[in-house]
Nucleic acid binder design. Sequence first.
DNA 1: GTTGCGCTGTGATGTATCTCACAGGGGGTT
DNA 2: AACCCCCTGTGAGATACATCACAGCGCAAC
Lengths: 232, 232
Amino acid sequence: MHNVEQQHIMLALRENRLFRLIAPTHHGALANVAQRRVIPDKTTIVRKGETGDEMFALVRGRVVMTSLSPEGKELTLGYLGAGDIFGEIAMLDGGPRTANVTAIEPCEVLAFRRNAFLQFLRECPDVAINFLTLLASRLRNTDQTLEDTSLRQLPCRLARRLINLASDFGHATMGGVKIPIRLSQQDIGSMTGATRESVNRQLREWEGRGVIALEQGYITIVDHARLSSLAE
Amino acid sequence: MHNVEQQHIMLALRENRLFRLIAPTHHGALANVAQRRVIPDKTTIVRKGETGDEMFALVRGRVVMTSLSPEGKELTLGYLGAGDIFGEIAMLDGGPRTANVTAIEPCEVLAFRRNAFLQFLRECPDVAINFLTLLASRLRNTDQTLEDTSLRQLPCRLARRLINLASDFGHATMGGVKIPIRLSQQDIGSMTGATRESVNRQLREWEGRGVIALEQGYITIVDHARLSSLAE
DNA sequence: GTTGCGCTGTGATGTATCTCACAGGGGGTT
DNA sequence: AACCCCCTGTGAGATACATCACAGCGCAAC
């Protein structure tokens, strides 16, 4: 392996939520089992139902995880950014991929193959424990989302989503907290399990009440307190 | 610690899905950090929202995981039996418990506390890897359930649930595959995110068509092929 | 420019479920 | 037995959404 390439990988490892906490001593070993790849925008990296023993660490860019129902309705499971991990379920349990993952920006990833990565974990149990913690948080999130979609109705779900997006990616402006991802109402619908029409009506109503502001495809949360109370 | 007690714990470890694969050499170390507890029927072991750094391995009996909406609607996340693990999310990430876990039979559990257990994992990375695989499968399941509840409607969801229950717990009889758990229609509703009335109507319809049979609170799947096709 | 396409906005209508209401029924307990 | 409690079974609304239908609008491609 080229030394330059390996340097590049080690730099990327330092930014990753799973690896940044471990002693740089181990980065070398890890860099040896990682493969770096550049992914063009709009490329699907893993496809639901396929088999694959690779796990990916997102170094640069953003991806979206989706699932498609037999009737063609799309469900968005979430967005990931630099430092995140994906593809870990199939890598770990050997089953088929559970979702599609598609680049929504030009991306750069590190790929780890099952055997090599598990071997690394055996040598660095602290990383394994970090990984466990990461999966636990993922589980916490999906459990919460599951609860929301079965127990709450649209306005509440939508409010929660917006708050989540804002706390994950949002940054403060004079007008409030702006969500810096361009989301069509279609996209929001597929995140909340609703149609774009329903999303449209709800967003407009909130805009009318001054809870949020809509401009050029971006959403800004104006009255965070009110939105929180709508989220219960 | 009493030697008898420790023997008892080591016996229980051999039956656990997370620990049975590891060399018995390590069972001693693990038994040292485990605490055995007997839980009476209908006792709530962990409560949603509380903090707690313990994880539990179910040795004997069955428990149900539930969550309650602010308006009082209950959602059942699943049933666990001997050999299963629960409480791992809060143990790992230190956050509040994500669900209630209640005994539906007299139970016996092993409790592991965070620090001691993580220390054990550091010494037995193979267990950590098993654990990762287990969490991955859990994620796979909840992702699937999430997809079902957002994308499919009741008949399909219900069919899937029945098939799952049958494959997890069911055993064959002359009449078909019987689910040996006593479930009220209320319970089934809270598993599928529906009201008991809707469940009732659907089950009755299927009974009329000869797809399932209902007797004394137990469900038997008569025409498995038909039910599968209803599940898409 | 004009064409086309994907997004927004909004009414009219349809429908899968929930809610409410009530009538049994079975199995404990007194 | 009589009582109670929890479960089942079913009808008649109410309702949160989806679906359909169509008009406008911004913007990239031609």
